[in-house]
Design a protein around this nucleic acid. Structure first.
Length: 463
RNA sequence: GCCCCCAUCGUCUAGCGGCCUAGGACAUCACCCUUUCAAGGUGACGGCACGGGUUCGAAUCCCGUUGGGGGUGCCA
């Protein structure tokens, strides 16, 4: 355990996928741990039985890995599993009971509801507080919230005061004997020596409860920091049901980790100048909690895509080729792809698009109806193709520059601009009206294949 | 209902009392470039929620209103 620097923690509960909001929180903690020479502690909060599957933990680790949060780094510690520490949680519970900070209650949720309705109050109203109930199976241990108020010193939002009169005597240990989140969370933070708790704003209302627990257990609370949540276009917290929140899904669609990381960091935070595309090491040195915005930020896939395109364009030739590789069918020749790659790189938004851009080179033509309709049914398409076929068949230097100047000669009698004149050739050879630069594509495709396709297309034209 | 948080272009943000005629980015639109589509270049559109204070001076400070968000579990 690195005791010298501050100790941050990221404490996700396994849910089967990794939430982009969680990714941002993890990144904030990771950046802080790095810039302060501190430690990033990963704790899996798996105390809810429904949230406990080993493969889900694997998913968390690999998602973090993808983001650059490397579990082999000296800055990284864990993962710890909350479920392994229930003895400690229960020990603390006993201590709380014995010191009078907690008491047993035997009201069931339904009884509480009924009594609350009868008395016209909202929740549990401390009815068992002074009954002096002994520990027994089926009884809940509740924290005895004292009079007064709690001030939470928050590193991103300043002081927040909560009046104890609005905090009910919350549960510490369930009637089945298992510890509840607030207790487990605090006890773990204590035993893991956590000094900084940076998490999403949804935890702010828990914080006074947890801070009371720190006090009751006679310990100094950590530095709190609550960052705003991420929202959808309806300005609601990103939810699994409605929104595309799984980090893995973006990864599988061909978003670059660097782009995702950079984008996530700009949600609620900025470098302070007019730059937003910046390398991780610079983000680390600039990032500070009191620069974090206080209002929820919309997770905008459009802007993420813009970042991704930007990052793709910044890649070196070789890096780009490597990055494309997993997205191309194994049987496609890589050296052929390398020839066209420089022309597809500036046009790509995500890697899942790459094969669809160059498939005509490897998988033959498939005419797109709309494209055909648009350019092959014109008066001159047939005549232009005939002329182009004749000249291309006789061409000796099969290079893009040649192919272009030949077509320029061919198109002259038709009184067309190159943009129009190349269209029938493009559709004949690629099947579509849009694609990588045409003459470069023809060069890669080769003379024979190009001519075959042009002839095939020509014979398909009715007139 | 109650508690807490928040409020600058459609979106993400810069701004921390005079440098603001409010800056940048994404999106949108136009033009340029051009081998289609992108990329790139230039430009346009577009915002301090509202009302009161404080101050010589307010996007910046205070109060209220309105609007949004989070929480309100023997979930985490």
């Amino acid at each position: 355990m690195n005791a010298s620097g501050p100790r941050f923690r990221f404490a996700p509960s396994p849910t089967g996928f990794f939430h982009v909001g969680g990714a941002r929180t993890a990144l904030f903690n990771w950046a802080l741990a790095q810039s302060t020479g501190g430690t990033f502690v990963l704790r899996i909060e798996d105390t809810d039985e429904a949230r406990n599957r080993p493969e889900w933990t694997e998913g968390i680790l690999s998602a973090l890995e993808w983001l650059g949060i490397d579990s082999a780094s000296p800055t990284f510690e864990g993962p710890y599993f909350q479920s392994n520490y229930s003895d400690e949680h229960l020990r603390a519970a006993t201590q709380l009971y014995e010191s009078g900070h907690a008491y047993y209650c035997e009201m069931s949720p339904t009884e509480i509801e009924e009594r609350a309705a009868a008395e016209g109050v909202t929740g549990y109203n401390g009815w068992s507080r002074d009954l002096g109930l002994e520990p027994a199976a089926g009884r809940v241990l509740r924290f005895r919230v004292p009079e007064g108020s709690t001030i939470v010193r928050d590193a991103v939002r300043g002081d927040v005061e909560f009046d104890h009169s609005v905090i009910e005597d919350f549960a510490l240990v369930r009637s089945n004997g298992t510890p509840v989140f607030n207790l487990a969370n605090v006890v773990d933070d204590m035993s893991m020596g956590i000094t900084n708790v940076i998490r999403a704003e949804e935890h702010l209302p828990n914080t006074p409860k947890q801070q009371m627990l720190w006090a009751a257990l006679d310990r100094e609370p950590p530095v709190w920091g609550h960052v705003p949540v991420l929202v959808n276009e309806q300005r609601k917290k990103l939810s699994k049901r409605r929104d595309k929140v799984a980090l893995e899904q973006y990864r599988d669609e061909g978003y670059l980790a660097d782009a995702m990381v950079n984008y996530l960091m700009t949600l609620g935070w900025s470098a302070g100048d007019d730059r937003e595309i910046l390398p991780w090491n610079e983000i680390v040195s600039l990032f500070a909690l009191n620069d974090v915005n206080l209002s929820p930020a919309f997770f905008d896939v459009k802007k993420l895509s813009a970042f991704n395109g930007e990052y793709i364009r910044m890649m070196s030739n070789d890096d780009f080729l490597d990055a494309c590789d997993p997205w191309l069918p194994a049987e496609w020749d890589r050296s052929t792809f390398a020839l066209i790659a420089p022309h597809v790189q500036p046009r790509l938004v995500t890697f899942s698009d790459v094969s669809g851009v160059v498939d005509f080179i490897f998988a033959g033509v498939e005419y797109d109806d709309g494209s055909w309709e648009k350019v092959m049914t014109t008066e001159i398409a047939g005549a232009l193709l005939d002329a182009a076929i004749a000249r291309y068949a006789a061409l000796e230097n099969w290079h893009a520059v040649e192919l272009k100047s030949v077509l320029e000669e061919v198109m002259e009698p038709f009184d067309l601009k190159l943009g129009k004149a190349q269209a029938p050739v493009r559709v004949a050879v690629t099947g579509r009206t849009v694609g990588p630069p045409l003459f470069e594509s023809l060069e890669v495709l080769g003379q024979q294949e190009t001519l075959e396709r042009m002839r095939a297309a020509r014979s398909r034209i009715s007139t």
